[in-house]
Design a protein around this nucleic acid. Structure first.
Lengths: 229, 229
DNA sequence: CAAGGCACTGAAACTGAGTATCGTCCGCAT
DNA sequence: ATGCGGACGATACTCAGTTTCAGTGCCTTG
């Protein structure tokens, strides 16, 4: 359902005033006055002064959740990557509003914080989804956390780039590229590990300066293999 | 320098009251009264009612920043992993306070939001650090974002596990395990710093399942050394 | 000892966000 | 016409956070 005309007027008045005077210097009374309604009415349409900048985040989150549960992708990470496109689509389809909000959020800490919290909700949703998908495989919780964080980070990176370029280009190729990055990065973690004794899951990480001679490296590794910690 | 006795009394009063009545039901007046000082004094010691729960986050962030700039690790991701240990150390060294805060944050959305914002500051610091390190190599910004997000996610995962277990065990083995996960995941994304000879500082990070036979490992490493990417 | 400076505190007034309550008005169906 | 429900305005209230001013103890310096 479309937003009511009053909500619309309030949002426009708020954005205009935030732009002219700044966020902190604008009171809810000012917004209501410009929209031609009372202060009470403002709080009937928006739970807080911040929410007027981030309307329908709840609806978008619900949409993403629905997309996830309906997903037919064959791996968790692909499903989540698929779902995150919805978010970017929403931003891209009203570039005007997104850009205005981006400039505002860049200047006002309170709004930046609000946005960070919103993003965390998506990340949590992804984490829970991937966690359920992976079940109780070893390190499932850890992998879920990492995947969710990576997908969100990729999205944020692409979105910021698009916003900083004033929305001039199509952001989806960049998103696909970034998500491909994530998917390939995590592909080797998707394989189910063989279950067996616990030691089978130990990993060894060896780091050397590239300038070291191959012999030095081989010696060090040989030593390490002979004395597992 | 240690916190002043007044700050200490205020913090204890606040935590006690939050525990008894709940966060929203406790006013700053209540806290100040129990601590035996005036409301003014409260705000002289803490900028907000929330901050009494998260004292020295600024100091910790500065400490992490200092550790990063002083780092001698040979790759960005290792430096960041190194830095994140400081954070977990801080949590672990007063487990009592951490646990009390954890229970509180779990119940009060406002505090949860505050914590999310704090975490985002670390992530941003890491992102900028890795970004600078990677310079203008292709996808540097994207990789920086992903690495920062992953390291933070790994830390959060370990911390949450530790807190949920009431701080019963040493969290650092789990952290090391999680960070190794991240390092191995990103090993193919690492690049060297560009000082003079680009190749001189290249590193190789190899990860193997502990169940692999030494011969298999040696073969793989030999192959890798002969064909540097 | 005295005078002035400084850090800490209390008191009080103020702004503004967010909540709760009440009365009113308008549209709409029976 | 009567009843009803939803949206609005007005008002008062709580509380976080800011600002200002004044008092007090302490420490230095003459």
């Amino acid at each position: 359902m479309p937003r009511s005309p009053v909500s619309q007027r309030l949002a426009e008045a708020a954005i205009a005033l935030f732009d002219e005077r700044g966020y902190d210097e604008t009171t809810v009374d000012d917004i209501a006055a410009r929209a031609g309604v009372s202060r009470s009415t403002f709080f009937r349409h928006y739970r807080s002064k911040e929410e007027v900048i981030f309307p329908d985040h709840d609806a978008l989150l619900a949409q993403v959740r629905a997309r996830l549960t309906a997903s037919t992708a064959d791996t968790a990470i692909v499903a989540v990557c698929d779902a995150v496109r919805i978010v970017l689509t929403r931003y891209a389809e009203d570039a005007e509003v997104s850009l205005q909000r981006y400039r505002l959020v860049g200047k006002v800490p309170a709004l930046r914080h609000r946005e960070i919290v919103s993003v965390a909700r998506y990340q949590r949703l992804f984490r829970e989804f991937v966690g359920d998908w992976l079940g109780d495989s070893p390190d499932a919780a850890l992998r879920a956390e990492l995947m969710a964080a990576s997908v969100v980070a990729a999205h944020n990176q692409v979105l910021r780039g698009w916003l900083r370029a004033n929305g001039g280009h199509d952001p989806f190729p960049a998103l696909d590229h970034a998500l491909q990055y994530v998917i390939t990065t995590f592909r080797h973690l998707e394989r189910s590990r063989d279950d067996g004794d616990q030691d089978a899951d130990r990993v060894i990480v060896a780091a050397f300066r590239g300038s070291a001679s191959p012999d030095t490296v081989m010696d060090a590794i040989r030593t390490q293999l002979q004395t597992p910690s």
